[in-house]
Design a protein around this nucleic acid. Sequence first.
DNA 1: ATAGGGGTTCCAGCAGATGGAAGGTCAAGG
DNA 2: CCTTGACCTTCCATCTGCTGGAACCCCTAT
Lengths: 133, 133
Amino acid sequence: MNIGDVSRVSGLPAKTIRYYEDIDLVQPARGENGYRDFSERDAHMLAFLGRARSLGFSIEECRTLLSLYKDRERASADVRQVAIEHLDSIARKIEELEAMRGTLQTLVTRCHGDDRPDCPILDDLAGSEVQGA
Amino acid sequence: MNIGDVSRVSGLPAKTIRYYEDIDLVQPARGENGYRDFSERDAHMLAFLGRARSLGFSIEECRTLLSLYKDRERASADVRQVAIEHLDSIARKIEELEAMRGTLQTLVTRCHGDDRPDCPILDDLAGSEVQGA
DNA sequence: ATAGGGGTTCCAGCAGATGGAAGGTCAAGG
DNA sequence: CCTTGACCTTCCATCTGCTGGAACCCCTAT
């Protein structure tokens, strides 16, 4: 399988696949002509990576998951642990974003948004304490 | 005001302030000795930037907001527009993260998490269609 | 004079790709 | 046999938003 084929079946851009080889996530064979020669197993691993990345796992987490995936002696508890930690970090990110959204939503609501220059959004950013309750 | 002082009052690391000068967000004066010499106005702008960044505005959005902030002829509608667009992108990110959280939460719940190797999380990542409803 | 706590510049690196240039390879058509 | 075009290769630069560190200068107090 050439890189274009495996790109199609895994859904990852060829550039990304080369990058994954570069950082040693996959180790495709090489043909006579110097082309990468991907096995079914490689393609499978790349799809695995794509899915894990789409769930927001970092590259290092993916590396761990992939090694657990390849380890037939693994304990499912180890996988679960990685997933739970990631779940926590997702929850933290959501909280952060929701705090931002809350603040911004309030400011946007307060701003009349016409052609006059006075603007509660800028007032807040400037930190002036001159905003009505 | 030296960079250390303005760092304390704005809450931004000195490194970050130098970086903001580098990308032309602020233009502090220079003293005889080559030290940056920040005015009150500079300090104010840096605090503004810190607050805008903490609300998740990108550097380019901050640049726009700052120029609106400095423009006494601005229309509040322009500020509001920037804020609303940012609000949308925050909402999209939250949705993405919640989708991830939902999927992962399901998988984590399904995984017994003991010392046996079989694991619904890995099964899902591998894309095997062998999962019960 | 020296010690310390400022400040300065510049260069490298993080994640996680992505874009592009310059060139090699391969199969098909004329 | 030659060309065309799609594919492949490597390498280097770029993006975002800083952050760390080296090597150096400056200023004040002792």
